[in-house]
């Protein structure tokens, strides 16, 4: 009888360990575009509501909202959310959400830095890049715990 029980316990231990080896993070991401809609009440007070939008006129502002979550069983580490500034738009300075570490690129994503450190040489002069020159934006989030979710966002203006 005892001999049998040992075997069973060992088998269970093996099964348990196998399950533990499959723990992993699973990050999902979803982006949407919104527009600020201003409604004026009868008494003149204005209220702003964000609505999903599919059409924008040149000069209008697109609010990009990005939801992410970790549906895995383990924490995700060193998550880098990266987004090229869409063609035909220009980044609106200061509009990026301060999630983790936000930085920008002016060389198509080869390198990223904080705005004050984005410099380049022109005519022997070192110049700080202006937001119109940003080509990419990214957020680096050290850890997304299993089961956690979050949001990043930024705005661009349609040229």
């Amino acid at each position: 009888m005892l001999k049998q029980a040992k075997i069973v316990i060992l088998a269970m231990a093996v099964v348990l360990m196998a399950t533990a080896a499959f723990a992993a993070p699973k990050v999902e991401i979803k982006i949407r575009a919104e527009k600020a809609k201003i409604t004026v009440a009868k008494d003149g007070t204005k209220s702003t509501k964000m609505v999903l939008a599919k059409n924008f006129a040149p000069g209008e502002v697109i609010h990009y909202i990005v939801l992410y979550r970790n549906t895995g069983s383990e924490d995700a580490t060193n998550a880098v959310i990266s987004d090229p500034i869409p063609q035909g738009t220009v980044y609106i300075p200061g509009s990026a959400s301060e999630t983790g570490e936000v930085s920008f690129s002016i060389d198509g994503g080869k390198s990223f830095n904080r705005p004050a450190l984005l410099t380049y040489q022109t005519r022997g002069e070192k110049r700080v890049a202006s937001p119109e020159e940003y080509t990419n934006i990214r957020w680096v989030i050290n850890r997304i715990p299993a089961g956690a979710q979050g949001k990043v966002s930024f705005q661009v203006k349609v040229k």
């Binding site: 939008a53 059409n55 990009y64 383990e74 987004d83 035909g88």
Partner: peptide
């Protein structure tokens, strides 16, 4: 706009890239 996420597991092993995309039309 196509946004991507690259991340690693707790041990630092890279995980598959995930992305999401949205289109808007200019008026």
């Amino acid at each position: 706009n196509t946004i991507t996420v690259n991340y690693a597991d707790a041990k630092g092993n890279g995980q598959p890239t995930v992305s999401s995309s949205v289109d808007v039309t200019v008026n």
